[in-house]
C-alpha cells in the first residue's frame, strides 16, 4: 500500500496521500475566499450605488475621515503581507526560528492596524459622526452623510473582524510552529492561512481609496 510508505502523522484518514490533502486544503481556501468576495461584494455594490446617487454628500463626508491614519494603515497592512509571504517561504524551507519571528511580526503589524483603526473610531465618536440619534453633520448633507458613515462603519467594522480572526489564525500557526508540527514537508496550514491574510489585505486595498480618497480633490 502506498499510503503506508508515506504515512505522515498529519495525514487525515480520508486522503490517499499528503499531496492530495494539500491540493484539497488549498482549493478549499480559494473557494472560501470566493465566498468572501461575494460577501464583501454585496457591501461594495451597495456603497457604489449610493455613492453614485449622492456623490456630493459622500464626498463631503469622505473629507471628514482621517486620511493620514488610513494611509498609515495601508502601509502597515502591505508590510504585513510582505512578512506573511516571507513566513510562508520560511515554512517551506523549514526554518522554524525565522518562521516564528515572521509570524510574530505579522501579528504585531496586524495589532498596529487595529490600534490605529480604534483611534479613528474614537475620533469619529467624539465629533458625533457615528450614525444614530446623536449624529451631527451640516444640514445640507445630513441624511446622506449619515448613510456614508453607516456604510463606513459597516465595511471597516467587518474588515476589522476579519483582521481579528486573522490574528487568531496566526496565533495558532505560531503555536504549531513552536510545537514543531509545521515542517518543510507539512507547511500547508501556513500557506493556506497566508492566502486568507492576503485576502483581508486586498479588501482594505479596495476600501481605502473608496472610502478615503475618491472625490477628495474635487471641488
Amino acid at each position: 500500500m502506498p499510503e503506508l510508505a508515506h504515512h505522515h502523522p498529519a495525514l487525515a484518514h480520508q486522503f490517499e496521500n499528503l499531496a492530495q490533502q494539500k491540493e484539497a486544503s488549498t482549493l478549499g481556501m480559494w473557494v472560501f475566499l470566493v465566498t468572501e468576495i461575494l460577501f464583501f461584494g454585496g457591501l461594495f455594490a451597495t456603497y457604489c450605488v449610493y455613492r453614485h446617487w449622492y456623490a456630493d454628500a459622500f464626498t463631503a463626508a469622505s473629507r471628514e475621515l482621517i486620511v493620514w491614519a488610513g494611509t498609515t494603515n495601508t502601509a502597515v497592512l502591505i508590510t504585513s503581507s510582505l512578512t506573511m509571504a516571507l513566513a510562508v517561504r520560511a515554512a517551506q524551507t523549514g526554518e522554524r526560528r525565522l518562521l516564528m519571528t515572521l509570524l510574530a511580526a505579522t501579528m504585531a503589524l496586524g495589532c498596529v492596524f487595529l490600534g490605529i483603526k480604534a483611534f479613528e473610531y474614537y475620533s469619529e465618536y467624539i465629533v458625533h459622526h457615528v450614525p444614530g440619534p446623536g449624529f451631527q453633520f451640516e444640514a445640507e448633507h445630513y441624511r446622506h452623510a449619515q448613510l456614508f458613515f453607516s456604510l463606513y462603519f459597516m465595511m471597516t467594522g467587518l474588515h476589522a473582524i476579519h483582521m481579528i480572526i486573522g490574528l487568531a489564525v496566526m496565533a495558532v500557526m505560531w503555536w504549531l510552529s513552536y510545537r514543531g508540527i509545521i515542517t518543510a514537508e507539512y507547511y500547508n496550514p501556513v500557506e493556506v492561512s497566508g492566502l486568507y491574510w492576503h485576502f483581508v489585505d486586498i479588501v482594505w486595498i479596495f476600501l481605502f481609496p473608496l472610502l478615503y480618497l475618491i472625490g477628495r480633490h474635487a471641488h
Binding site: T46, P131, G132
Partner: peptide, 9 residues
C-alpha cells in the same frame, strides 16, 4: 445592523 445601530441603508 439597521435595526440595532439605526443605520439607514
Amino acid at each position: 445592523a439597521e435595526r440595532v445601530f439605526q443605520f439607514g441603508f
